[in-house]
Design a protein around this nucleic acid. Sequence first.
DNA 1: AGCGGGACCTGTGGGC
DNA 2: TGCCCACAGGTCCCGC
Length: 282
Amino acid sequence: MPELPEAETVARTIYPHICNCVFTDSQLLRSATLHPLSLPLSALNNLVIRGTRRRGKLIIFDLGSANNQSDAMSPSILLFHLRMTGRLMARNGAEDPIKHTRCYFNLRKPDGDAVRLFFNDTRAFGQIFAATPHLLDSWDFWRNLGPEPLEIDTDTFAQRLNSNRAIKIALMDQSVVAGIGNIYADESLFKSGINPLRPAKSLSMEEVDTLLHSMQDVLRLSISQCGSSIRDYVDADGNAGSFQNSFTVYGRGGKNCYNCGQPLEKMKVGGRATVFCKECQK
DNA sequence: AGCGGGACCTGTGGGC
DNA sequence: TGCCCACAGGTCCCGC
């Protein structure tokens, strides 16, 4: 399930395939894949991809004008949210779309060769959003996106956790911090020894500090392993990540805790499968 | 404010 | 082998 480390990996691995490429045209094969607030994909024509980056779970392409003329009405950003099963991949030439291709973009490389960028998504939850900065600010989700977990300090994190909600729910709330989903919430809470059901505001300053650094360690380790591959996820080169081999609790309900040996609890928290050790997480 | 549950999707895997 | 159904999960939306 693409979360922060997977989005980071895709943003990094897609870059060499599409940097400085110009959009020639686009095919949207499933209309709902385009965000309702997005500009039409035809607005991308003749724009160039200057760079790729990540914000939370979103993959961002920064666009420019191919002829260096600025136009306030043309999109400067193309966003991708992979949700659960979205994949972004580039192929030379004009390869055919596959069953789950929701959209593809025809690009022209600086040397004139053709590249086709595919957005494939089995479950069809993923979305694409072409926007001006102004348009992006009209999107509540974007405007409310919390800070990057790898960039905040303990005081900021503590302020944002001032809520009675279960700590796991707060961690996955994208307006608290951006990029944490089910996997990294469970893994971070286990590493920090905190029970996922604890009210967020019940954590001491020391616990908040421990949680922040555990979360950052987990995210950095996963990024270094190119993310976690469960079922669908692969990077832009089609390579699987390997962080799934480092899972301590996610997907291990009923199995023994690596720390104390007791069986791990599995329950629903906020409607999502949650695994933790009731001995080690207080 | 915050929670639970449904909707959106489709492939997988367990149970019978 | 085949059928059914629960499950996976990020976000939005609705009702309590």
